[in-house]
Simulated scan of single mutants.
Amino acid sequence: MADHMKLDGDWPALTWPLPLKEALAQQTGESLAQTARLLLIDDWKNERDKDKLIGGLLPVLADYAAESTRLWDEERWALIRRLVKNKGLIADPPESGPIAYYLAERGIAFPGEINGKKSLVMPAELVERFAKLEDLSGTPAQVKRNTEHIKLTQGLLYYYGVLEESELEARLIALTGETPEDGPNMFEVLVDARDFRAMYDFDEDALYANLDVEEPQELLRIQQARKELPYREFTKAELLKAGEYEYVERTKAHQELAGFLAREYAVDKDEADTIAEICADTFKNGKSMSAAFEILQFEFSIEDAQTVEEVGDLLARLNNGTRSWVLKGHRPDELNIVMGGGIPSNVLAMPQRSHQADVISIQTGRKIGRNDPCPCGSGKKFKKCCGAVGD
Rank of each mutant, 00 (worst) to 15 (best):
N346W: 13
D135F: 08
S345I: 04
P94D: 14
R366K: 15
R353E: 09
G243I: 05
A78Q: 13
E164G: 07
L152H: 03
K227I: 12
V127I: 11
G97Q: 09
A109Q: 03
E188H: 07
P17Q: 07
R194M: 15
L38T: 06
E246F: 11
I41Q: 05
I360K: 05
L18T: 06
E249K: 08
A349D: 10
K367F: 08
K383L: 12
R323G: 09
T274Y: 14
Q255R: 08
D270R: 07
F202E: 03
A25V: 08
S354Y: 14
D49L: 03
G55M: 03
K132P: 03
E218G: 14
L175R: 02
N319G: 04
S345K: 06
A237L: 10
D8M: 14
L318P: 01
A262K: 02
V359Q: 04
R250C: 06
D281C: 00
P94R: 05
F110N: 11
S166R: 00
P373G: 06
Y231Q: 10
I343K: 07
E134W: 07
D273Y: 03
L211D: 12
A174Y: 07
I275W: 09
S301F: 14
E238K: 02
S96G: 10
E233C: 12
W44N: 01
Q363F: 14
P93S: 12
K367S: 12
E228K: 00
P59M: 00
N46G: 08
G107Y: 15
V143K: 04
C385V: 06
D182M: 05
D8K: 14
A198K: 00
T282R: 00
A272P: 02
D195A: 09
K52R: 15
H149M: 11
R250Y: 13
R70Y: 08
A291L: 02
G365L: 03
P123T: 07
L40S: 04
A262N: 09
L261S: 13
T274E: 13
A258E: 13
I275Y: 11
L172S: 01
D270A: 13
E204T: 11
V127F: 05
L261C: 11
V189I: 15
L57S: 06
G138K: 11
A25I: 07
S290P: 00
S119N: 09
A170S: 05
E244L: 14
I337S: 10
E264M: 05
C376D: 13
K151N: 10
N320H: 02
R129H: 07
P180S: 11
M339V: 12
T282A: 09
L53C: 04
Y102R: 00
Y247R: 01
E309H: 06
D195Q: 03
I295G: 11
E271C: 01
P230I: 15
R81Q: 15
D182H: 02
W11Y: 15
M186H: 03
K269V: 14
D192M: 01
H254K: 02
L126D: 10
E299G: 04
A209P: 02
A388D: 05
K284V: 14
K328C: 12
A198T: 04
G29T: 10
A237I: 12
S378Q: 10
K383A: 13
P332W: 02
L211G: 12
A104V: 02
F300W: 12
Y64S: 02
S137M: 09
A198M: 01
P94M: 04
I54Q: 08
G29M: 11
K151S: 12
E134A: 08
D192W: 01
L335M: 13
